[in-house]
Write a protein that binds this DNA or RNA. Structure first.
Lengths: 256, 256
DNA sequence: CGGTATGTTGATCTCAGTCAATCTGGGTGG
DNA sequence: CCACCCAGATTGACTGAGATCAACATACCG
């Protein structure tokens, strides 16, 4: 298994700003510096594997990581894509239930739980920040349950595109151009479908004039409004009733 | 909308033991007593609705609650069933994104977030307990993503039955008898399918000699081992490859 | 400028969603 | 205690979304 390259063990520097936005403020950064190891990964490397024992928690500094679970015969479900500022790999009884691989070049901060845990207990703000983070991930997971349980391919792809558009790093709102950092296999495994079906959905969206594919990975979003509308509608399978979707207000933040 | 009956506003008593197992220890219970309102619900009542503003967080004292999101035309996805000791309805920007209804008679502790939040900040143990709880729910949500993204009806129903068997309240291991507290509609909406298909899966499992339906709600689990095996296998749709499942170790606890 | 991995398109077949009919269990009133 | 009722459950028939298999096309790389 490919392993990440240790850039430097604690203390570390750089990307702390990004980290701080999500987790810390002020002098607490200093305390984390004594804990984290910064790792450099190339594309396609393994960060951790399911079943593996762990003592670490991971923060994404830069790049993108796919968190997934394998089922059988190479089939897998991608639980989520993690980008800068996200955390993943919370120890669960000391064992990883998910695997994580880099989708692109990435820098990841690895912190020993053994060190992080006491710091968290001693730092209520940090603990609260972690709680918010986990709660946010929890909400995200619930949204995916909705998508996977009720949405057909078009809902799924539309939702996926809209979600990706929300990440500044991937979307140039000037040009209305979206850059997908992952391939169709990843997209398919994320949406709980196969690459062919995912691709066909893109084709259909293009035929409808909602998007335009410059290359498979570079997509111009022509009609954002219509794309958003496609996020809701009749469930997968035959439609018992045809009418259009009803807008649904979705609060996104959390824990007041 | 049916509302829960206020049994008594704080201070409260009873069911504190159950609550404490999951959240608190010792004198912290006393502090919560000053915060909670105990509500008595009949079957089918609304605890809260999506889109509704909220100031409360809910703890299930007894009974069972379905947390769901409506999509359109009465379609809904049940996100999870909550039982004694679970919490639900975390405020998200002050608005509920999910709805909750009682599946059975239930007693629910309602705590104003306004009161709970300061207590949590002042009580690191309580905050950690909440973090564990949310993390556990997060894990559960991930498991559901796997089920909905990769599992066909048989996987889903098998997983559902196994999960329900893990709840002592619903499963008599002596008789190997499972009592389902919810109807087929709830089961279907939980599994992201329709009642007919869910029912057919039960029929098939019975034909295979894995379960036996005494009544639709009372099910004898004849072959637990085979039922567990059915949790994994080829994905929904046509099977690209036939062979049997590989066991997968799933740690369930969390946060060291 | 190939060569390989990735992506798209086409054809086919199956699972599961829908509609419709029938059955049943749990509850009610006589 | 029993006949009746009805929501819930099952079964059957049909159909379409989407998974698979199979070419073919294109992008990205050295």
């Amino acid at each position: 298994m490919d392993q990440g390259l240790v850039i430097h063990a604690p203390p570390f520097e750089g990307a702390v700003e990004r980290l701080s936005e999500n987790l810390l403020a002020g002098d607490q950064q200093d305390r984390l510096r004594n804990l984290a190891t910064l790792l450099q990964y190339r594309r396609g490397q393994t960060v951790y594997s399911q079943g593996e024992e762990t003592r670490y928690i991971h923060f994404i500094g830069s790049g993108i990581v796919r968190v997934f679970r394998s089922v059988e015969h190479g089939k897998r479900q991608i639980i989520s894509f993690r980008t800068a500022g996200d955390l993943c790999g919370l120890p669960e009884a000391g064992v990883h239930v998910n695997s994580a691989e880099t989708v692109s070049t990435a820098r990841i901060y690895r912190v020993a739980w053994q060190l992080f845990h006491p710091l968290m207990l001693a730092t209520p703000d940090l603990q609260l920040a972690l709680l918010r983070k986990v709660a946010a991930d929890f909400r995200q997971a619930q949204a995916r349950i909705m998508m996977l349980g009720q949405g057909n391919i078009f809902h799924r792809v539309a939702t996926f595109l809209v979600d990706m558009m929300a990440i500044t790093q991937f979307f140039d709102s000037e040009q209305s151009m979206l850059y997908l950092p992952m391939n169709r296999f990843d997209v398919a495994d994320y949406l709980g479908t196969c690459p062919e079906t995912a691709g066909r959905a893109f084709t259909k969206l293009e035929d409808m004039g909602i998007i335009r594919r410059i290359t498979p990975r570079r997509i111009e979003i022509i009609d954002t409004a219509r794309l958003r509308l496609m996020q809701r509608g009749p469930r997968r399978g035959q439609s018992r009733s045809g009418p259009p979707p009803a807008a649904l207000e979705l609060g996104v933040s959390l824990l007041g």
